[in-house]
């Protein structure tokens, strides 16, 4: 357990610089977005009022006021989120491969640590999950701050105030990052963890058997995917709404847990018996 925690902190420290860079880029870009969006909007409104000689009331008959939701769909806001997500997806692979293909063969050291090798698996998994949650939490802190800046930049009559909750629930992707119920949270983040566990097992298949391992890993991945979908496939044969949603959830939860345990067991076996430096 102690070694696991040491390894987690070690794995986090190895990515911390890039991670902080991601947070800085996201923060800077999103604040810049708030700034430019509100300025542009104010300018557009002024221009329209002058050109069309509308009154402000007339204006809002034809055009909607600006809300923070407009900001959240802009590139300034979304692109750093996509970029961070992509970086973490990439790092999910790199967190393993860097130990084999770095300048020094660090995998020798990791495999020779006097600790159960599955701790390497868990520490890398934990590190990625913590980094995902960290970024999501950062975003959650950023939204009210950005929203406050937004309110500062525009006069009352040009904007429509929204609560953070409303902002999140009105955005398709933000409502995935921040589900509004615990069950939703379990589904999204549970599925995410499951995918990560299976991905790690596939990587270990590749690291153990190389080309053949890609085939084994591919089959393993496809197998788990089909297994997860099997309740729905079977139901389409029977009748579309054979089970209640809660029953489907229970079955999926059960399958997810079984697949995770199996995947971890396979990884444990590969790390101890099949892995090669």
């Amino acid at each position: 357990m102690k070694n696991y925690l040491k390894l987690v902190s070690f794995e986090l420290s190895r990515f911390i610089k890039i991670y902080i860079a991601l947070i800085v880029v996201t923060t800077v870009s999103q604040f810049a977005g708030v700034f430019s969006q509100s300025r542009n909007y104010a300018a557009t409104v002024n221009q329209t009022l002058q050109q069309e000689s509308f009154s402000l009331n007339d204006y809002f008959v034809s055009y909607p006021p600006l809300t923070f939701i407009n900001v959240t769909v802009s590139g300034w806001f979304i692109i750093p989120i996509i970029f961070s997500a992509a970086a973490l997806v990439f790092y999910s692979f790199f967190i393993w491969y860097r130990d084999w293909f770095g300048k020094n063969a660090f995998i020798y050291r990791l495999l020779m640590l006097p600790t159960n090798r599955i701790n390497l698996f868990f520490s890398k998994l934990t590190a990625i999950l913590l980094m995902v949650l960290g970024l999501v939490a950062t975003q959650l802190i950023l939204i009210p701050l950005e929203s406050a800046l937004f309110n500062q930049l525009l006069p009352d009559y040009l904007r429509y105030n929204l609560s953070t909750q409303t902002i999140i629930s009105s955005s398709e992707y933000l409502s995935v990052l921040f589900p509004d119920s615990f069950i939703q949270f379990l589904i999204y983040y549970g599925l995410g963890s499951l995918v990560l566990i299976v991905l790690f097992t596939i990587i270990l298949f590749e690291r153990s058997f190389h080309l053949k391992g890609i085939v084994f890993g591919g089959l393993f991945g496809a197998g788990t995917f089909i297994l997860m979908l099997s309740p729905f496939i079977i139901q389409t044969k029977l009748s579309p709404y054979y089970l209640y949603p809660i029953e489907n959830f229970a079955i999926e939860l059960f399958l997810g847990i079984v697949i995770s345990i199996f995947s971890i067991w396979v990884s444990h076996y590969l790390l101890n018996k099949k892995i090669t430096v």
Binding site: R14, G102, N104, A105, F106, Y108
Partner: peptide
């Protein structure tokens, strides 16, 4: 075991 490349991060 001391491998032929250093088993530590550079």
């Amino acid at each position: 075991f001391i491998p032929d490349t250093i088993a530590m991060l550079s």
